[in-house]
Amino acid sequence: MVARKRKRAERDAESLPSPPGYSAIPIKFSEKQQACHYLYVREHRVREGTNSAWPQKRTLFVLNVPPYCTEGCLSRLLSPCGSVQSVELQEKPDLTESPKEPVSKFFHPKPVPGFQVAYVVFQKPSGVSAALALRGPLLVSTESHPVKTGVHKWISEYADSVLDPEALRAEVDTFMEAYDKKIAEEEAKAKEEEGVPDEEGWVKVTRRGRRSALPRTELASLRVLEREKRKRAHKELLNFYAWQHRETKMEHLAQLRKKFEEDKQRIELMRAQRKFRPF
């Protein structure tokens, strides 16, 4: 224990080691804790030409956010560096456009958080550089802003999980209205195209028309092949010619040999494992 403490003291004395391009900010839950986790932060940059949802220069990319640290916390902790526009926590670093539409809390319950990564967008680029120079340690839960964990958190989560059925009903209704409209449009469009040749003169045959075609599914095509095969097998004569007879016999023998080889292997294995000692 003593050795470990000394080690930590040494570590604190020199500047915190951090991977190239990143700087490390110690973070801990509250004053009471001894050891820190380290946030590894850097400016969010992408290669030329790739799209990114996050604004260049103003976005701070944060690794290793502990599970008890929420978006709100992070925003509060980083606000001394400059006013924070938005904080987004994600499970993995993600360069593509994140889904912007709000997800329904009824149909996509919030997952249990682990260690996450965060994209923090500041109002001004100066916020990013100020954050990179932060020395910490940051405290997630303070007297003025306590963060709930453990039993208190579970109780409040349980209370939140008891949902309002009316809100759910309203959400379902709006979604279904939009969905019905979309389907109706699609159908109308399909009806319009029905039997109308395109510019090269091709006519699209669909299931809905008067002469419906086979559904275009893998299953259907497999079924057709199967039927063909059965038809062919039905016509074939078995054990009719002498060579056929000979071949069936040979096939039987081959089967026996194969089985014998398999059995031998099995026995070999069992012998190796001393499975033949009865007592």
């Binding site: 839950f29 964990t149 453990g150």
Partner: peptide
């Protein structure tokens, strides 16, 4: 220490 923090009370 996280073990203790996450399960506070328990």
């Amino acid at each position: 220490e996280d073990f203790a923090v996450l399960g506070e009370g328990l």
